Computed example of a mutant assay.
Amino acid sequence: MTDLTLPIYNDDDAARAHLEAIRWPDGAFCPHCGELDNVHRMEGTSHAPGLHYCRSCRKKFSVTVGTVFERSHIPLHKWVLASHLMSASKKGISAHQLHRMLGITYKSAWFMAHRLREAMRETKPGPLGGEGKTVESDETYIGGKEKNKHRSKRNASNIGGMGKEIVLSLVEREGRVRSHHIPEVNAKTLRPILVAQIDRKSFLMTDEAGQYYHPGKEFAKHETVNHGAGEYVRGDAHSNTVENYFSILKRGITGTYHHVSQQHLKRYLAEFDFRYNERSGLGIEDDERAMKALKGIEGKRLTYRRAD
C-alpha cells in the first residue's frame, strides 16, 4: 500500500528529485542538443529550482522540458500524485475527483489527466503474440442509449442510429492488450490492424463474425467460437480474455467517466491498456506502475489546443 503522505506527493523538491532519478538515471542531459557531459545544475536563489545549463548549446532546461509536463504551472508534486492516482485506480479516476483531491480547477485537472494519458500511450510497440502464442480479437461498443440522451447529443448517423463508438481490442493471453477506436466493423477495416499488430505466427481466436474469415487465414491458426449458438468455450478456443478486458473498460467508462467523447476515446483506451499491460497479475504493483507512467512523459507534448 502506498503512503500518500510521502514527500514526493507533497513537496516539489522531493518530487523533482524523484522525477530526475527516473528520467536521468545516468545524470542530466540536455533535451535541446543531447549533451550529457557539458551540463551543470544552476545553484543559487536567483534561479528557479531544478534549473540546468548546457554549455554546448547555451540553453537552460529542467527535468520537465521535452515532456508532457513542460510549461505547466501546476506544482510538480501534484503531477507525481496524479500519475500515481491514475495508475493505481483500476477503473480510472475522474477529472472531478482529481480536481477535488489536488486542489486545482476542474479545467486544469481535465487537461492534466489527458497529458498523463498521453504519457501512458505506447510508443513503437512490437507485435503481439508470436510462435505458439494466442491472441484474441473482438469488438465492443462504447456509449449510452440514444433514447437516454438529450436531443442535441444524439448521433443517429453512427452504427445504425445507436450513437455508439466501436473499440477493437487485441489481447495476448497472459500478456498485453492493444485497443483501437475504429469507424466500422468489416474485413477492410480490421485486416490492416490485425496483420500490423499481431505476429503472423500467432494463433488467432475470435467469435464467428464473418469479417475475420479471410484475415484469419494469414495466421498460423484461426479458431472461432459461435456465441450465437451459445458456444463460449471449446477446448482452448474461446475469447474470454478479451471479454474480461472489456468488462474492466466498460465498468470504468460507465462508472467513472460516464461519458467519453469520440474525439478523446483513443486516449482513454491508452489509459486502460496501460494499466492492463502493467497489472498486478504480471507482477507489477502500484508504485512501479506509476514510475512507468512517469517514464512515458519524455518526448511527448500535448497542448490545450490539441487536447480540446
Results as ranks from 00 to 15, higher is better:
85 L>K: 00
86 M>T: 01
86 M>P: 02
86 M>R: 02
86 M>D: 03
86 M>E: 05
87 S>P: 09
87 S>Y: 04
88 A>V: 01
89 S>Q: 08
90 K>Y: 08
91 K>E: 09
93 I>H: 00
94 S>L: 11
95 A>V: 02
96 H>P: 03
96 H>N: 09
97 Q>P: 00
97 Q>W: 12
99 H>P: 05
99 H>S: 14
99 H>V: 03
100 R>C: 08
102 L>T: 03
102 L>P: 01
102 L>G: 00
104 I>N: 02
105 T>Y: 14
105 T>I: 09
105 T>R: 15
106 Y>V: 04
106 Y>E: 10
107 K>D: 15
107 K>M: 10
108 S>R: 14
109 A>V: 09
109 A>T: 03
110 W>D: 03
110 W>F: 15
110 W>Y: 14
111 F>P: 01
112 M>K: 06
112 M>S: 06
112 M>W: 07
112 M>V: 11
114 H>C: 00
114 H>E: 13
114 H>K: 13
114 H>F: 14
115 R>F: 07
116 L>G: 01
116 L>T: 08
116 L>C: 14
117 R>N: 10
118 E>W: 04
118 E>L: 12
118 E>Y: 08
120 M>D: 04
120 M>H: 08
120 M>Y: 02
120 M>Q: 06
121 R>Y: 09
121 R>G: 10
121 R>K: 15
122 E>N: 13
123 T>M: 13
123 T>Q: 14
123 T>N: 11
124 K>G: 14
125 P>A: 14
125 P>Y: 12
126 G>N: 11
126 G>H: 13
127 P>D: 06
127 P>R: 15
128 L>Q: 01
129 G>V: 04
129 G>R: 04
129 G>K: 03
130 G>P: 04
130 G>W: 00
130 G>E: 00
131 E>W: 12
131 E>D: 11
132 G>F: 12
132 G>H: 09
133 K>F: 13
133 K>G: 04
133 K>W: 03
133 K>E: 10
134 T>Q: 06
134 T>S: 10
135 V>Y: 02
135 V>A: 07
136 E>N: 03
137 S>Y: 05
137 S>I: 10
137 S>D: 08
138 D>K: 06
138 D>P: 07
138 D>Q: 13
139 E>G: 09
139 E>L: 11
140 T>R: 08
140 T>K: 03
